[in-house]
Structure formats: structure tokens, C-alpha cells
Design a protein around this nucleic acid. Structure first.
Length: 535
RNA sequence: GGGCCAGUAGCUCAGCGGUAGAGCAGGGGACUCUUAAUCCCUUGGUCGUGGGUUCGAAUCCCUCCUGGCUCACCA
């Protein structure tokens, strides 16, 4: 169909692994422990792209997303935060909300935020909170199964991951009736309806248990399964058939291996398929030393338009790592490449790049891209010339009025370009009039100096940039700044930019000159036109 | 110690069995109202190393080197 090769698009490869004769469930999950950094979006975006692709292949697919709000608070960074130390080891649902007006507890506060973030990115799975699953008893059957097979599971942990738990260990954490912690309890001795437990002061490094012990039912929300076993319970409960994941989990002897073995041996089922994606490294290794970056990873998701974020995550094959540094020319290049993918879509929609554009859209069934799009770098230039109205410039460039979609697109780019200029643009992408005559002006030729003197004299005679631009050409010719073929040499315009910026290029000259303070331009050009310029 | 990924033009990467590609950067030119706009042309690589398979390998297999990440506590 497409050009030449039939090297398949990665998402199609995954789709072909699934049996078209049966329904499928794709699962992903997140712990609501804090703001979502951009690097954490690779998984959800890939999962969503896969779900869309599977559906495109005609598969019957449910997309389930669990919110792991029964997990214990174990983050070291949190521990240092004021008021947080006492909550270490408690489940996230039991920790106070940072803002009670937004959500009732810590987990719900962060869950609400990432749910709306996902929605903005076009990721709209079925969300399920672990608190609902546990408290309703929906997972009680699986808890019982796990507890009855605790010895088998213990052997699997030892065999696959070389982790040896003490005899009698049970793969659950109960919530301590005394202090409410879940990360500090050790459960033993399942009798079919209750377990013995102790809330231990030194069970984990990151939290201190209260020392209480007793017996209680592990059901109806009194306990949570440990990570690997909880994973199996969810696969079983939802009938999960596909789950991709980061390579931290899918590594040999890692978490997924353990869960797979438990699922086969204890649950008697075949675990889901799923590729392992490489990591998204934010800022590379030099991140720590570059403080001028000016944006945290979790800020980027609010700054970048959703389709750019999706494109960033999807344009690289999931098995390859992405080293992303938002500084410098990264963003203009990213947007340029995004535009190329849009053009690819307008051409042959079956190419990989075109498929990527489609999957990068917020809507699963998007309208085609507007044929006219202002280039990002050009928009950034427009923004730096006060006299220019980007909408008008865009119309001029398109040579026709912009339609609604084009106008929306332009406004997105304007906002993004503003952020870029402020935070990341390299110096030579910015135009700023130097406070005094730049040293580079010393190299101006006599003809260029005459040109500047004459242009300076022209300032104030017209306010019309079109007229001024005409005059610039005439003056350049009068000063002999012409090429052998007769056209005006670029040395003429270079003289203007050198006098103002110290570099040989810049935005359209007449518009620039008229946008600046006339006195400043006059005196600057007068300075530059003098022969004896000190170096 | 285990696992994964990468090493192809200055940069970012695509190609994954059939005489080396793209974008950007660089160079040249066109546009006799324009630049960092737009358009055209163009320089540039013995595809990390050493073996092997093959009529033929950047592409498959093995070795090694370099860089990056990750697991082995918890989730």
C-alpha cells in the first residue's frame, strides 16, 4: 500500500499479536503520589495509541486504568516536606489533601489532576480506584486465592527474583488498626478468614510502625495485596489481555516476570502480552547543571500543546529511549517535524510518519491538519517585532484569509512561541537592540556607512513600512550596494542589523526600523556611519 | 551480577538482506520590494570493532569496545 517496504508500524505489530476473535482489555495504572512529570506520560500515551490502533484493526477493546490509592507513601522527597513525615507509610487515600477545596484526600487530589491532564491529552480510559475495588470486596476472591497459595508465591519470589521472604510471610499489607499505616505491617497465619499482623517499627526504612499487633480480616478493604500479587488480581478481575510497561518493570527477573509466574502458577492463567518501552529521559544527564532551563518536567505538560506532547512520545519507537532537553532549538525542531508529519498525513496517510501524526491528535478521529500552518520559528520572529500583527502576517504569507482551524493553530503557536522565547530560545534567535553600538560595526564598509547615514536621515519621513522598504532599496542602490547582476546586495540589510544587533541578520528591515524609537535609530545609524569606530 | 537500548553525513535520526537516506546545519543560486521568508541546486558517510552466514549485510549470527538506562528494597 504505502511506499516500497512493508516494515510495519510498531503499533500494528502489537495489534497482530492479539486474537481478533475475542474481546481485549488493555490496562495501565498510576500511583497518585504527586504531580505528573512529562517523562511519566510516555506509558499512558503509548497505551492510548495502542488502544486506538487495536480498535482501528477492528478489535473489541476496553481500556482500564487503575488509580493505586491504596499504595503506601514511601517517597523520600515527600518525607522532607513539611507535615509529611508523620504520614510516611500510610496509604495515599488516608493522607490529608494539599487543598481540601479541590479534593478530600491526598490521593484524590493528585488523581483528579492527572485524570484531567489525561483528558486534555485525549487519554480517556475507564478509571478505577483501588479503594473502591478493595472496599467493595471485588478483589476478595483473589486475596483469598493469594493467601492460600502464599508458600507457592514465596517460592516464586525466591526462584525468579532471588528474594527470600521469611517462612509464614503473606503477600499482603493490612492497614494497622492503631496507626493507620499500611507500609509497616507484616501479616502471617491466614486461617481462611483472618490474618495475624504486626505493625513493625523497623520493617521498612522509610516509615516507622507503631508496634501494634493483632488479628483481623484481610477482606473488604482491610488490606491490600503486595505489588506483584495485586497486579495478578487486577489482571484476573478485569480479564486483562494486554499491558505495556516501562523497562524497569519488564526487565528479566523484574516485577513483571514475578507477576507472570504467579499468574500462571497460582491463577492458572496466561499473563497479558505487552511491549516494554524505554525511558523518556528529561534533560539528559546535564540537567542538574543547567538551571536556565526554567521549567520543571511537570510544567512542560501544561506548556506544550497536547498534540505536541503526544507527538514527542510517539515519534520515537517505544523500544528506543528518548533523551529530551527542552532548551535551545529543541522546540522549533520538534514543531517543524510535527508539521512534516502533518504534511505526510495530507499526502499518503498510510506512512509511519502520517500514522504518527494521526495518533498524536487529541481526537481518535481527527479532522485533517490545516494546509496552511505558520512555521514556529517564523511566528517567534513575528512576536519580536512590535509593529507586526501575527494574524495579518500569516494572512499575507498564506495570501488568503485564515479559516477557523488555521487561526486556532496560529494562536496555539503564538502562545508556545512566547514561552519558548522567554525560557529556552538561544540568544541568536532573539533580537535585542544592543545598548550601544556593537563592536561588529567596526567592520562596516564605507558604502554601508553611507547607506546607514542616508537611512538615518530618512527616519521620520514615513510611517508606512511598505514605503520605507521601497526607500531602503533605493538608498542601497544610490550607495552602490548592488550585486553584479543589478539587484540590491544583502550587505545593505546586513548593515542595519549589525548596527542594531551586532549580527548580520534580523527581521524585515523597514518594519523593524519603524517599530523602534526614531531617536535611537537615528543616533545609532549616525554612530555607525562615522569612519572612526573604536573596536 | 542479570536485563534493555544506542553507536549510520557537523547535529537529530530513518533505513533492518539487493548498488547509502531525510530534516536541520553548511555551500551556491533564484526571487530586479525582503531576511533567518519562499523556491531550486549542492558539499558531506569505507553505516563502532573483529569474525561468520550469503551470489550479495548498515540490515542476519557470534565476539569485543564505547555510551546510556534499568533490576536485584518498595511500588
Amino acid at each position: 500500500m504505502s511506499s516500497g517496504h512493508d516494515a510495519a508500524f510498531w503499533a500494528d505489530d502489537e495489534a497482530r499479536l492479539l486474537d481478533p476473535a475475542r474481546p481485549h482489555v488493555v490496562r495501565d495504572s498510576k500511583t497518585p503520589s504527586g504531580a505528573v512529570p512529562i517523562s511519566a506520560l510516555r506509558g499512558p500515551v503509548i497505551s492510548d495509541a495502542l488502544v486506538r490502533t487495536f480498535r482501528g484493526h477492528g478489535l473489541d477493546v476496553r481500556f482500564v486504568y487503575t488509580i493505586d490509592d491504596y499504595d503506601p507513601m514511601d517517597s523520600q522527597s515527600m518525607r522532607l516536606q513539611e507535615g509529611m513525615a508523620e504520614h510516611m507509610g500510610k496509604p495515599f487515600f488516608a493522607i490529608p489533601s494539599p487543598d481540601p477545596s479541590v479534593a478530600s484526600d491526598f490521593a484524590e487530589y493528585h488523581a483528579t489532576r492527572f485524570i484531567s491532564l489525561f483528558a486534555r491529552l485525549g487519554i480517556v480510559p475507564e478509571f478505577h480506584r483501588m479503594r473502591d475495588l478493595y472496599r467493595s470486596g471485588a478483589l476478595d476472591h483473589q486475596i483469598d486465592l493469594v493467601l492460600r497459595n502464599a508458600e507457592t508465591i514465596r517460592a516464586i519470589h525466591k526462584r525468579i527474583a532471588h528474594v527470600e521472604h521469611a517462612p509464614g510471610w503473606l503477600p499482603i499489607s493490612v492497614i494497622c488498626e492503631n496507626c493507620g499505616r499500611i507500609g509497616t505491617t507484616l501479616a502471617t497465619d491466614y486461617d481462611g478468614s483472618t490474618v495475624a499482623y504486626a505493625c513493625m517499627p523497623a520493617y521498612v526504612e522509610w516509615a516507622q510502625g507503631c508496634g501494634h499487633h493483632g488479628r483481623m480480616s484481610p477482606f473488604k478493604g482491610n488490606s491490600k495485596l503486595l505489588w506483584n500479587e495485586q497486579w495478578c488480581a487486577q489482571w484476573d478481575h478485569f480479564g486483562v489481555t494486554y499491558e505495556e510497561g516501562g523497562k524497569d518493570l519488564l526487565t528479566a527477573g523484574g516485577s513483571r516476570d514475578r507477576s507472570n509466574a504467579i499468574y500462571r502458577e497460582v491463577f492458572g492463567k496466561e499473563p497479558p502480552l505487552g511491549l516494554a518501552h524505554e525511558f523518556f529521559l528529561f534533560g539528559g544527564r546535564k540537567m542538574a547543571s543547567s538551571k536556565n532551563v526554567g521549567a520543571k518536567a511537570y510544567e512542560l505538560v501544561n506548556i506544550y500543546p497536547p498534540e505536541i506532547t503526544r507527538f514527542l512520545m510517539l515519534r520515537t519507537h517505544p523500544k528506543r529511549h528518548i533523551e529530551f532537553d527542552p532548551a535551545g532549538m529543541t522546540l522549533p525542531r520538534l514543531v517543524d517535524e510535527y508539521d512534516r508529519s502533518a504534511d505526510a498525513y495530507l499526502g499518503d496517510a498510510s506512512t509511519d510518519l502520517a500514522r504518527t501524526w494521526r495518533l498524536a491528535q487529541v481526537s481518535p478521529d481527527p479532522a485533517p491538519p490545516p494546509p496552511y500552518r505558520a512555521r514556529f520559528g517564523t511566528v517567534a520572529n513575528w512576536l519580536q517585532i512590535p509593529s507586526i500583527t501575527p494574524e495579518k502576517e500569516a494572512e499575507r504569507e498564506k495570501a488568503a484569509p485564515l479559516d477557523d482551524a488555521e487561526l486556532r493553530d496560529l494562536h496555539v503557536r503564538i502562545e508556545l512561541a512566547k514561552e519558548w522565547l522567554e525560557r529556552w530560545a538561544p540568544e541568536d534567535a532573539k533580537f535585542a537592540v544592543t545598548p550601544s553600538l556593537p563592536p561588529a560595526a567596526a567592520a562596516l564598509t564605507p558604502a554601508q556607512r553611507r547607506f546607514l547615514a542616508n537611512v538615518g536621515a530618512e527616519i521620520g519621513r514615513t510611517a508606512d513600512p511598505e514605503v520605507m522598504q521601497e526607500r531602503l532599496y533605493e538608498i542601497a542602490k544610490e550607495c552602490g550596494l548592488v550585486r553584479a547582476e543589478g539587484g540590491v546586495s544583502r550587505d545593505a540589510f546586513a548593515a542595519i542589523y549589525i548596527a542594531l544587533f551586532g549580527k548580520p541578520n534580523g527581521p524585515r528591515a523597514a518594519w523593524l526600523i519603524l517599530a523602534l524609537d526614531p531617536d535611537l535609530v537615528r543616533s545609532r545609524f549616525a554612530d555607525a556611519s562615522r569612519d572612526s569606530v573604536k573596536v
